[in-house]
Design a binder for these strands. Sequence first.
DNA 1: CATTATGTTCAGTCAATAATGAACGTATGC
DNA 2: GCATACGTTCATTATTGACTGAACATAATG
Lengths: 157, 157
Amino acid sequence: MDDRLVASRNDFVELMGRAMEAEGMPRIGGRIVGLLLFEGRPYSFSELATELGVSRGSISSNTRLLVEREMIAKCSRPGDRQDYFRVADDLYGDLLSGVCRRIRRTSGDIRRIVGELPDEGDTPRERLERFADFYDAVADGIQVAADKVRAQRDTAA
Amino acid sequence: MDDRLVASRNDFVELMGRAMEAEGMPRIGGRIVGLLLFEGRPYSFSELATELGVSRGSISSNTRLLVEREMIAKCSRPGDRQDYFRVADDLYGDLLSGVCRRIRRTSGDIRRIVGELPDEGDTPRERLERFADFYDAVADGIQVAADKVRAQRDTAA
DNA sequence: CATTATGTTCAGTCAATAATGAACGTATGC
DNA sequence: GCATACGTTCATTATTGACTGAACATAATG
């Protein structure tokens, strides 16, 4: 393979690793997604381990995590015992939905706390409600974006 | 202070601590913001340390970080040497702008890598461009939300 | 049945970084 | 000038969580 292409690929894989890390997930998870995205074809379990130079244990736990979050999908091939992985059909939409869910969980937590505030006295009820509203507004916005992405994909297909 | 109110406050402070941690910032930073938001009044440097039960060193580094990110603001009082802190006027908008900036940086990184791909041959150019487009679309959406939040605040005031 | 391929689990290691607290510089008030 | 209050810095400690690799379970293959 072209040297420059390899260099680009490594850059991209590392970039995705760091981006994933910033989202609070293991770096290797991002590397896996990056590799699959860059190459645009399924990779086998062992291929992932050798290509990324990480332990099989890491591949096992990270692919499981990524499949759970629907960022990649497991697929198999007739006459081949290995597990293969590819990027999920709706990777973009699912990325957004995940962010969305996290935000809504936080807003829900805030509202739960507000609900337990004493009724009388000087409480921060209104301030906290506005804060929760803010979170929900952001989640709404992202949800719209996710729907848009899905619509676009469905039209293209 | 009412016991239940104290309990709620601790819950909220801890919630903000964890939320901030999820955003890749120190937990204490979130606790500071949570306390200021809940109480709705400025707190002095020492108050923050004693109230949150953390070292003065932590208060120093975390308030600096939060001021840099414009999530809180330093304010002073005539005839008082202490530093006081309050939530920033545009906390919400700045939170969103921060997220936005991070996303655009990633999309820029992707486009830089795409720009260095060899011209000919089978390259993932189009795939990666679509990925960068996705990131930008999300950033656009968040930017809109941030503007909306600012507009709302300016009307209310 | 022995061997090999495959993926999982988990105890231990390692690295990143948050938090502490003592030492320090500076300013204030007595 | 002395004592005190305030905030910063930085070396050290503690914590967290990713990663490894060996042991394991399972299934295919000859």
